[in-house]
Design a binder for these strands. Structure first.
Lengths: 133, 133
DNA sequence: ACGCGTGGTGAGAACGGTTGTCAAAGGTCG
DNA sequence: CGACCTTTGACAACCGTTCTCACCACGCGT
């Protein structure tokens, strides 16, 4: 079994995630910690996030450019996200309709062990307002 | 306006995509072309795929490791994919229901310029049969 | 409290996919 | 044919992420 020592650094990462509601990249998180005076290495942030993701403590999703974004979500059950492309503001959503649709479609094609990726991206009201030239 | 000259290289990329039914990475495509004796630079393959994607001539999908995968799809209109995670067999699907759901949910949260990622992964009938020990 | 073993850390190097650079090659049009 | 202008291709640069490896410190057992 894993040891999972609670070090200063890991605590810092978890705390930062708790305070930030939105999806953030590992590098953003790293900068945030640095800015606070917490001395944490970038590699450590990556490792901490990896571990947290594996333990389902955080949700991971990929930005359009391939960067991984992390977020501590309110619920651990299966759900999806509506994310602002610009500020990362996130709303947790679920869609029983979609879940049903997904498994139905897949079954109709003879597929098994269905998994799905469903994420919504947009520009939130605030960002739209502030970028309106 | 773009020139979009049809060069030997672009033709080669398109032809290769036409023959291959499954999602392939830029690098795989590049190797395929090289193996055939077609002399095409890697950068050119990337550029061609980019252009094709922009023109909606090919669909792009991100693998779990972040690599971009390309495929020539039968229909140009917006659609999604049900992909076998073992053999890569792909079925094009659409879900008017889901599209409607997505925009409704997003709008309800005050988001704009909505885009969505919806992909289904599963095991196709053939793969299930052949892996049944 | 203290020490020890083991997992964690961090700076920087390595990596892998992708994109940029720029001189040379080759369509296109007059 | 010749000028013009896009495309090409080898290679370097990028960028996010992972690896390396010597040093550090958590926390268990005493």
């Amino acid at each position: 079994m894993a040891a999972a020592r609670m070090t200063r650094q890991r605590t810092a990462v978890v705390e930062a995630l708790d305070e930030l509601a939105d999806f953030r990249s590992a590098q953003q998180l790293h900068e945030t910690l640095r800015a606070r005076g917490e001395s944490v290495g970038l590699a450590t942030v990556y490792r901490a996030l990896q571990a947290l993701a594996e333990a389902s403590e955080v949700d991971v999703l990929r930005a359009e450019d391939g960067e991984s974004l992390y977020r501590r979500c309110a619920r651990r059950e299966h759900h999806h996200h509506l994310v602002c492309r610009q500020c990362g503001r996130t709303v947790e959503i679920d869609g029983p309709t979609v879940e049903a649709w997904a498994s139905k479609v897949a079954a109709a094609q003879g597929f098994d062990d269905i998994e799905h990726t469903i994420e919504l991206w947009g520009t939130c009201a605030d960002c739209r307002a502030s970028s309106k030239a």
